[in-house]
């Protein structure tokens, strides 16, 4: 494939790589798995890039490919040891910025998210990224009404996990 295409892709990916990191953060629970998923999403983005027309923003396009890879295409690398415990280092919360209760709440929050299923995680991700229901519905392929209903359910579910 031609160099110019490669270059423009890598440049844009570098600028927007946080989107991929954030997807990985929700869908994996240790550093190796994070890197593995990051790698796969990058490959999928690159493979789809020639068809990227630029009629949507590069970042919007990345959300979709990133989530699709995490939910559908990605096969967990069997060579890696699967840990269900999540790696505290990955979620190091900067203590100085929060009081103790808040820090504790955040920790609980992230571990609660990790208990959700793949689709629920996608909804939490899109919520955290401030996506509107139109985009959520288009990304997941469900109606806006259902996206709204499901989102409320997920939020409630999180609240119940936190305040049993």
């Amino acid at each position: 494939m031609n160099k110019a295409l490669e270059h423009s892709f890598v440049e844009q990916l570098k600028e927007n790589q946080n989107i991929i990191h954030k997807v990985c953060r929700l869908y994996t629970n240790n550093k190796d798995a994070h890197n593995d998923l990051f790698q796969e999403i990058t490959i999928q983005l690159w493979k789809a890039y020639p068809k990227f027309r630029g009629d949507s923003k590069f970042s919007t396009w990345m959300y979709r490919v990133g989530l699709n890879t995490a939910i559908t295409l990605y096969r967990k690398n069997k060579r890696r040891i699967q840990t269900s415990e999540f790696d505290a280092l990955q979620f190091k919360i900067k203590a100085e910025e929060y009081d103790d209760t808040e820090e504790e709440q955040l920790k609980l929050m992230y571990s609660a998210i990790h208990q959700l299923n793949d689709i629920e995680k996608a909804l939490v991700f899109l919520y955290l990224e401030d996506k509107d229901y139109k985009e959520i519905s288009a990304t997941l392929g469900i109606s806006e009404v259902n996206a709204r209903v499901k989102m409320n359910r997920v939020k409630n579910k999180l609240r119940t996990i936190l305040n049993p």
Partner: peptide, 17 residues
């Protein structure tokens, strides 16, 4: 990741479903 780190990533083979 720097650009130099991203380049080798796109050369790798997918292990998707």
């Amino acid at each position: 990741y720097s650009e130099a780190e991203i380049y080798p990533m796109i050369k790798k083979k997918s292990s998707s479903i």
